[in-house]
Design a protein around this nucleic acid. Structure first.
Lengths: 364, 364
DNA sequence: CAGTTCTGCTAAATCCTTTTAGCTAATTCG
DNA sequence: CGAATTAGCTAAAAGGATTTAGCAGAACTG
C-alpha cells in the first residue's frame, strides 16, 4: 500500500523483498525461503508461507536478477553464441537446447556474434559473464585462448562442431567427416568422377575433422585423384553458393559434373546458378547439400543432403554444460553424433526420378 | 601473484576489484574510477591510472556483471524477443539492431520465445529483467498486460509490427497494410481475379493493420468481391505454405489463379506445392511473397515480393529504446516504415519473362 | 519441573561494484 | 606566513537477494 517516498508516486520501481516482507509481516529472509522452496533446510509454517505468497502476488514481486546473481554467483542463463541468425540449422539446435536447459532451470539466450560490428570478439561481452555457461558454435568469434580463459574463470564452455581446445572444455559435434564421405561416395556411386566441393573456409588444421576430409577419403577410396581446382571456398550464404557454382561452371572442359556443398543454404545457391546457366539438375549436374534443414524439401529439385541430428546436438550441448556446472567429471570430452544421407532429387538416384539420373550422371 | 587461500590453488575464481586494488596499491574505488573513465568527476594522476590499468591487465580483471548491474541499476543489455530463429527476416533486423545498440554501449541478446516449451511467457524470464530494454517481435509470447507490467517496472519496451499497447511503449513497424495492398494490386494489374491470401493467423482486431487489410482494400478498389474461402490460415513455415497452397488447389472450379503469401518462407512452400501439382509458375499460377528475404532470389522461379527496410526497422527499434532509457519524450509513438514491391519471376510481369505471363494469368 | 527437542522465524553477513562526501597533503594566494 | 585552493585519493554506504547460525517459545520427556 504505502509507497516509499511521499511525493514520487510516478517513480515506478520494482518491489523488493523488503516490500513483500513488510506487507506479509515477516522478514526478507522468509520471503527468500518461501519463494525458493528452501523448506527442506528451514521450516516455515503453512500459514506464513501462504501469506508470503499472497503478498508477493499482490505486489507483483519478482526477485531482482542482478542481486540474486551476485549473491548466488550464478545467473541461470546459458548463452548460445552463433555466427549469425540466418542459418536455420541453429534454429533446431537452439530449440532443443532450450528445452533441455529449461528442465534444469536455465534459460537460453542467443548471441549472433559474427554480426557484431567491429572488434567484437565474444570475449568482450562474455567476460562480463552475465551467464553461467556458454555454447560456442562458430569459432570465428573466439580464439581457443579466449575460451580457455573463460573456462579458467569458472564459466562452463562447450564448443560445437570443433575439437575441444582445452581439457576443461567439452565438445559436441556431428561426424562431419563421415558426412563428407557419404555425400561424396553417393555421387561416386552415381557415376560422377569429377566432383567439386564448396566449403566455407579451410579451418585451422587440427581443430576439426571436416567435410573435406571425408570428401578426400571417398575420392581416394574410389581411386580418384584429388583436384584442388575443384575445391572452392565461398561465403556461407545462398549467394556464396551461387557464385562458387558459377566459378565451377566456368571451368570449361574441366568442369565437374557434381558438387558437394558445405550446407543446404549454399546448395540452394548452387541450384539457382545451375538454373540460370540452363543446366538441368540432376541430369546435367548433381548437387548434394549438408545439414538436412527444411529448405531442402522445398527446392526445385528437392535436395539430397546429409541430415544431422540437430536436436540431439542441442540437447547434448546442454547436458555437457550441466555436468560442467556440477563439476562432475565428464564421461566424454568429445561427443560425436552420426549423420545420415537423405536421398532426394538433386542427384538423381532417389525414388522420385530414377531412370534418367544414372545415365546422364556419367555424361561429359 | 599471491592467491586468496593458501591451499586452494585449483579454485579458479575471477579476480575482483579488491584484488586489482591490492596489486596496484590503491583502493577499489580507484579501480572503478580509472576503469570507467570517471576522470571528469574525480581526479586520478596519470601515474596511478597506468598502474591500475597494468594491474587489471595482469590479473585479467573484468568487472562482475551482476554486481555492477545491481549497483548501477542497469545491465546494458537489450533483449530481442523473436518468435523463432528460423525466420531469416529477423537476422537482418537483429544485425542492424546490434550495430545501433553497440554505438550506445548496449549489447543485444536474442530470445526465441515461441520455441520455449511449456508455459513460457516471455514474462517469467523477463520479469527477472536481466536487461534494460526489450524489443518484442511476435506478440504470441507476451500479452499486452505483460508488456505494460514490464514498462511499469521501468523496463523500456518496444514492439515490432504491432500497435503499441500502452502509451509508454513505442512501436516500430513496416506498413503491412500498404504491402498487402501493393502485392494484391500487382496481381490484379496482371489480370488475376481470384486471388488467395494465406496468412499466419488472424490477429486480434486493433492490434495492427495487416496484410489482410491491404488485400481487402485492393480487391475493393478493383471492384472484386472478397471471397472468404480464398483466405487461409497456416503455420508460418515452408510446410505451412505448401499445405495451404494444396488446399487452394483443391478448390476445383473455384480455384484461385494467384496467391499472396504471408511471407517469403510460406511462398517457397507454395512454389513447391505448385510444382508437385504440375502447375507452372507464373503461367498457371502466380505467387507473391512478403518480406524480401534472400531466399526469394534463389527460388525457381524467383519470387516477387514486398521488400521491407529490415535494417531500418532494427535501427529504429534501438533508437526508440534509447530515447525511452533517457526518459526523453518520444517524438513519435508509432513509427511506420514504407515497403516496396520487388518484381521477379513468380508472377510474371517482370523483366525476366514478360510475354506469357499476362496472357495465362487470366486462364481458367 | 528442569532439561531436551522441535518449530518457526530472524539478524546479519555476504556477494562486488559504484558513487559521493570528505580527508590529507601540496600548492597558490594575498 | 597563514589562509584558501586544488589535486589525488579513500572510506563507507548503497544496491537487493540469499544464506546460515542461532534465538525464542512451544512441546515433550523423564
Amino acid at each position: 500500500m504505502a509507497r516509499r517516498g511521499p511525493t514520487n508516486a510516478a517513480q515506478a520501481s520494482a518491489p523488493t523483498s523488503v516490500d513483500v516482507a513488510r506487507l506479509a509481516g515477516v522478514s526478507p529472509a522468509t520471503i527468500s525461503l518461501v519463494l525458493n522452496g528452501r523448506a527442506s533446510k528451514v521450516r516455515i509454517s503453512d500459514e506464513t508461507r501462504d501469506r508470503v505468497i499472497a503478498a508477493a502476488a499482490q505486489l507483483g514481486y519478482t526477485p531482482n536478477h542482478a542481486a540474486r546473481s551476485l549473491r548466488q554467483r550464478r545467473t541461470n542463463i546459458i548463452t548460445f553464441v552463433l555466427p549469425t541468425l540466418d542459418n536455420p540449422y541453429f534454429s533446431d539446435v537452439v530449440r532443443a537446447a532450450q528445452t533441455a536447459a529449461q528442465q534444469h532451470g536455465y534459460a537460453v539466450s542467443v548471441i549472433p556474434a559474427k554480426t557484431m560490428p567491429g572488434e567484437f570478439h565474444a570475449l568482450s561481452f562474455l567476460q562480463g559473464a552475465a551467464f553461467d555457461g556458454i555454447i560456442v558454435a562458430g569459432r570465428e568469434n573466439c580464439t581457443a585462448a579466449e575460451l580457455r580463459q573463460l573456462a579458467a574463470r569458472g564459466v562452463a564452455v562447450v564448443v560445437l562442431q570443433e575439437h575441444s581446445p582445452d581439457s576443461a572444455i567439452q565438445s559436441v559435434s556431428v561426424d562431419l567427416e563421415a558426412g563428407g564421405y557419404m555425400a561424396t561416395r553417393h555421387l561416386i556411386d552415381l557415376g560422377h568422377r569429377r566432383i567439386a566441393h564448396v566449403t566455407e573456409k579451410l579451418h585451422e588444421p587440427g581443430t576439426r575433422r571436416d567435410r573435406l576430409d571425408g570428401y578426400c577419403r571417398a575420392l581416394e577410396e574410389a581411386g580418384l585423384t584429388f583436384d584442388p581446382s575443384l575445391v572452392l571456398t565461398a561465403e556461407n550464404t545462398m549467394a556464396g553458393g551461387s557464385n562458387a557454382t558459377e566459378q565451377l561452371l566456368d571451368l570449361g572442359a574441366l568442369r565437374p559434373t557434381a558438387a558437394f556443398m558445405y550446407n543446404d543454404q549454399m546448395a540452394v545457391g548452387a541450384l539457382h546458378a545451375l538454373r540460370v546457366r540452363g543446366l538441368r539438375v540432376p541430369d546435367d549436374f548433381a548437387v548434394v547439400g549438408f545439414d538436412g534443414v527444411a529448405i531442402g524439401q522445398f527446392t526445385a529439385p528437392t535436395l539430397t543432403t546429409i541430415d544431422h541430428p540437430r536436436e540431439e546436438l542441442g540437447r547434448l550441448a546442454i547436458e555437457a554444460l550441466i555436468t560442467a556446472f556440477e563439476k562432475r567429471p565428464a564421461d566424454m570430452r568429445e561427443h560425436l553424433l552420426p549423420v545420415k544421407l537423405v536421398v532426394r532429387e538433386s542427384c538423381g538416384g532417389g525414388k522420385t526420378s530414377p531412370p534418367k539420373a544414372r545415365r546422364r550422371a556419367q555424361a561429359k
